[in-house]
C-alpha cells in the first residue's frame, strides 16, 4: 500500500459517491449510461469472486480487511446504481441515446481473457476478463456523451474522478515496480488503455468545466 494506491482508491470511491449524489439530488439518471453501469457491475462481480472463497487460511492483515470492505462497497453500490436506473428513476432514462453495442465488448474481452491470462482457471480467466472489461466499460458512456453533445457539470465531475483514478494507478504501478519489483502486464496495458480512452474527455473537462463553463462538445 502506498500513497498513490490509496489516493486512487479513494478517488474511485468519490466518483461513486458523486454519481449517487447526482442521481439523488436531481432525482434523475439523465446523461448516465445504463450500459456502462451494467458493465461495471459485471466487472466487480467477476473480479471480486474471491470474496466468496474461504478466508480461513489467509493471514489476516489490515490490507486484506481494507480490500474486503472496498470490494463489498464497489459491488453493492454498482448494484444499487442499476436499481436506481431501472426502477426508481426509470422514467428519466433515455435508452435512445444509450445505443452502444456492449455485446461486442463482452465477447472481445472474454476472447482476450481466454487467450491472454496468467493461469487457465475459472477464477483467473474471470479476473482477467474483468480487467479487460473495465478498460473499455466507459465506452457506452462516452458514446452517449458524444451523441448528446453536452453534460451536466456534476456528471462530468463523476466521469473525471472515474477516469483519473486509473491514471493515478499508473503512478502506483511505477512506484511498485521500483520498490517491490512488481510486474503485472495484463493490468498495466489495460490500465493504460483505460486512461487513454479518457484523453478527449479530460481535455474538454479541463478547457471548459474547470473554467466554470458548461461541458459542451466542440
Amino acid at each position: 500500500m502506498n500513497v498513490f494506491r490509496i489516493s486512487a482508491d479513494l478517488l474511485h470511491l468519490l466518483s461513486i459517491f458523486i454519481l449517487l449524489l447526482k442521481m439523488q439530488k436531481t432525482r434523475s439518471v439523465a446523461g448516465i449510461s445504463f450500459k456502462t453501469q451494467l458493465l461495471y457491475t459485471i466487472v466487480f462481480i467477476a473480479r471480486y469472486l474471491d470474496l466468496f472463497e474461504s478466508h480461513a487460511e489467509k493471514s489476516f492483515e489490515l490490507v486484506t480487511l481494507y480490500n474486503i470492505v472496498m470490494k463489498i462497497i464497489f459491488i453493492s453500490s454498482s448494484v444499487y446504481t442499476l436499481y436506481l436506473m431501472k426502477k426508481k428513476f426509470r422514467a428519466t432514462y433515455d435508452p435512445n441515446t444509450d445505443t452502444f453495442r456492449i455485446e461486442y465488448l463482452l465477447a472481445l474481452c472474454l476472447f482476450l481473457a481466454l487467450m491472454f491470462n496468467y493461469r487457465f482457471t475459472v477464477m483467473e480467466v474471470l479476473w482477467t476478463f474483468s480487467i479487460y472489461l473495465e478498460a473499455v466499460a466507459i465506452l457506452p458512456q462516452l458514446f452517449m456523451l458524444s451523441r448528446t453533445g453536452e453534460a451536466e457539470t456534476i456528471t462530468t465531475h463523476y466521469l473525471f474522478a472515474l477516469g483519473f483514478y486509473r491514471a493515478i494507478y499508473l503512478l502506483n504501478w511505477i512506484w511498485r515496480f521500483h520498490m517491490e519489483d512488481y510486474v503485472d502486464w495484463i493490468v498495466w496495458i489495460s490500465g493504460a488503455v483505460q486512461t487513454a480512452l479518457y484523453s478527449d474527455f479530460f481535455y474538454i473537462y479541463y478547457k471548459k468545466v474547470l473554467h466554470g463553463e458548461k461541458f459542451v462538445l466542440p
Binding site: D9, R47, D50, E53, M70, M123, E124, Y169, V187
Partner: peptide, 10 residues
C-alpha cells in the same frame, strides 16, 4: 494461493 492473495489490488 487463491486469486485474492495474488491480485492484491482492487
Amino acid at each position: 494461493t487463491s486469486t485474492g492473495d495474488k491480485h492484491d489490488e482492487l
